[in-house]
Simulated assay, not measured.
Amino acid sequence: MRDLNDAFGKALRDLRLGANLAQTDFPPKVSREYVSLLERGVRSPSLETIDDLAGVIGVHPLTLVLQCYLTREPETNVKQLLDEVQREIRLEMI
């Protein structure tokens, strides 16, 4: 199991590169320096920062968070994780 900050950094880097973006494409929303710190696992983002990062990449913020947990727990697949979340959300609504 990877450290959560490291997993988030890898997920961010993978999605950023997949979108053909450089770290310099994030300002003014998020500074290049902060993107670098996040990708190296040195810092943890706030929800607002996750939202800003996802907006620049062009994905839903949950995609970034989901990719983080899939990176952290490689034995888990997308369907398992989404099924778990869906069950938990339904339990909360009852």
Rank of each mutant, 00 (worst) to 15 (best):
V35L: 04
L70D: 01
L62Q: 07
A19I: 09
Y34R: 09
R87L: 10
Q86E: 06
E73P: 00
R13V: 10
E92I: 13
Q67E: 13
R72G: 11
L37S: 11
D25W: 05
R16Q: 08
K29T: 07
T76A: 06
K29Y: 12
E33Q: 15
N5D: 14
R16A: 08
S31M: 06
L81G: 00
G58I: 05
L4H: 01
T71S: 12
G18H: 13
D83H: 03
R72T: 08
L64H: 05
H60K: 10
D51M: 10
P61F: 14
A19S: 10
H60D: 09
K10Y: 14
V42S: 05
S31D: 05
V30M: 01
E84P: 02
G58H: 04
V85H: 02
A11N: 02
L15P: 00
L21R: 05
L15Q: 10
E73N: 14
P27R: 02
T71P: 02
S44T: 15
A11K: 03
F8Y: 11
Q23M: 07
A22P: 00
V42Q: 05
G41T: 12
A7W: 05
G9H: 01
T76S: 06
L81S: 01
S36E: 06
D52M: 12
L91S: 07
K29N: 07
V35G: 04
R72D: 07
I57E: 01
E39D: 03
V35W: 01
P28G: 03
L38C: 08
I89V: 11
N5K: 15
L4K: 04
I89M: 03
L17T: 06
S46T: 15
L17Y: 06
T49D: 08
L47E: 12
E73G: 11
L47I: 12
K79I: 13
D25A: 10
Y34Q: 02
V30I: 07
L70T: 02
A11L: 09
E75H: 14
H60T: 07
H60L: 10
L17V: 07
A54L: 12
D52Q: 08
